[in-house]
């Protein structure tokens, strides 16, 4: 078991982390290329000011707590705080970053980390419950939407149990292996699922730029389809 844990902590983590980084880099490059290179000079006509102003309001989305969405939106926002802070700044994870990236990040205290972890788990449960019981959310949901929430829940729950032996239903080794494998599976999922919004979020928020249409494209589309003068 120890060997498996070492393998998961070492080479497997490196590989899965690399898959995530390369996958996200691919998405980033495609988006940057298509926006900046492909649209080029057309972007100077875009309403940058209003697009960026709208984008900025979403980083602290208090203004967007509109009636009918307050609970979901608040929990969703708070959930992201835990999801970003705990994996990056937990003391045990800091060692990993040091080993692999040489980064020397400040750690958050264990008490705060425990609170954030439980809080994030609570947020995930609320989001899951709302997806099940709110009709309009259920109507939109697909198996993947539930699966991803559970996949995010797993490393948080297993991590908490592993660091709190009193509440751990399994052995420390088993729980740690569950924690490592689930977290690494999540890393692999990121670039291939909607979790890719880690990167794509920023491009979606400025997607108003896509109103800068490509001149002559409509004519080419019509000609390709009708093989004659485009019909009105």
């Amino acid at each position: 078991m120890e060997a498996w844990i070492d393998f998961a902590k070492g080479p497997l983590f490196a590989v899965t982390f690399l898959i995530m980084i390369l996958g996200l880099a691919r998405l980033l490059i495609i988006q940057v290329y298509n926006l900046i290179i492909s649209k080029g000079g057309r972007l100077k006509n875009a309403p940058w000011k209003s697009i960026l102003k709208d984008a900025v309001t979403w980083f602290i989305p208090v203004k967007h707590l509109i009636k009918g969405t307050v609970i979901f939106s608040a929990f969703s926002f708070m959930f992201h705080i835990g999801v970003i802070l705990v994996p990056v700044l937990l003391a045990d994870h800091i060692v990993l970053w040091e080993n692999f990236l040489g980064a020397n990040l400040p750690a958050i205290g264990q008490g705060f980390a425990d609170f954030l972890t439980l809080f994030t788990i609570g947020c995930i449960l609320v989001l899951l419950i709302m997806r099940v019981f709110v009709r309009r959310q259920r109507a939109m949901s697909k198996p993947m939407d539930y699966f991803l929430l559970i996949m995010v829940l797993l490393p948080f729950a297993s991590g908490y149990f592993a660091s709190h032996p009193g509440s751990n239903p399994l052995t420390w080794e088993s729980m740690m292996l569950v924690h490592l494998l689930s977290a690494e599976f999540l890393l692999v999922l990121i670039p291939f699922t909607k979790l890719a919004h880690i990167v794509l979020y920023f491009f979606d928020r400025i997607s108003g730029l896509h109103w800068q249409l490509r001149p002559g494209a409509g004519d080419k589309v019509a000609r390709a389809l009708f093989d004659e003068e485009a019909r009105v």
Binding site: D145, H197, D204, R214, V221
Partner: peptide, 26 residues
């Protein structure tokens, strides 16, 4: 349309990030 216009990267981005949170509904 995908061949001649610029919609492809937009669709790629939306496909991989649509949250289905239903805020739009209300």
């Amino acid at each position: 349309i995908l061949k001649y216009t610029d919609y492809k990267p937009l669709l790629d981005s939306y496909c991989n990030s649509s949250a289905k949170c239903n805020r739009c509904a209300v």
